[in-house]
Amino acid sequence: MGVTVEEKNLEAALGDSVILTQVDKVIGWGRKYSFFLYPFITACCGMEFMSAAASRYDLDRFGAALPRFSPRQADLLFVVGTISHKQAPILNKVYNQMAEPKWVFAFGACVCSGGMYNNYATVQGIDTILPVDVYVPGCPPRPEIVIDGLVKLQELVANERSSKWPRGKAQYEPRVKR
């Protein structure tokens, strides 16, 4: 739609005391700088996650520093490392336990596509079991590309419409209930 002349005049008339915007934009702006991430770390990418999160690269600069070790307190699922078929139902349960709104960050080649493992044991990309918002390839990805992925996720979150939520449970159910 864009801003109409009337709105512009209105904003000018109100001066510096009032900012006109949309509720979705304010909420998105707030959310993008306050990710509470849940690190689901299974393999060697975890080392690179640590270096991206620690002081030199410092994910805290982007408001995503505080890992929560309960999925119920987190809104950003960091899937870091190879996901095996045995692990997949657990990842599914963790995703379903998170409160909405929630986003999924696929960290590394294995999470994105299975990476170099195409065998009896390995899930060929977690997007076969849950929705993924950002894919960061690399084996492992360097912190720079992790930060790039995080900034891209911030852009996505900032421009989201509230009608996107709730997104509901992951698209698949485990075949066997445990």
Binding site: H85, K86, A88, P89, N92, N119, Y120, A121, V123, Q124, G125, T128, I129, Y172, E173, P174, R175, V176
Partner: peptide, 27 residues
């Protein structure tokens, strides 16, 4: 491996393309 897994994957006659996921498509 999980209890539901059928066969023994390091046997040379285990089909190299066989997949037995617990969740999601057989990719």
């Amino acid at each position: 491996l999980y209890e539901e897994f059928e066969g023994h994957p390091l046997r040379k006659d285990y089909n190299i393309r066989k997949r037995q996921p617990l969740i999601g498509p057989e990719n």
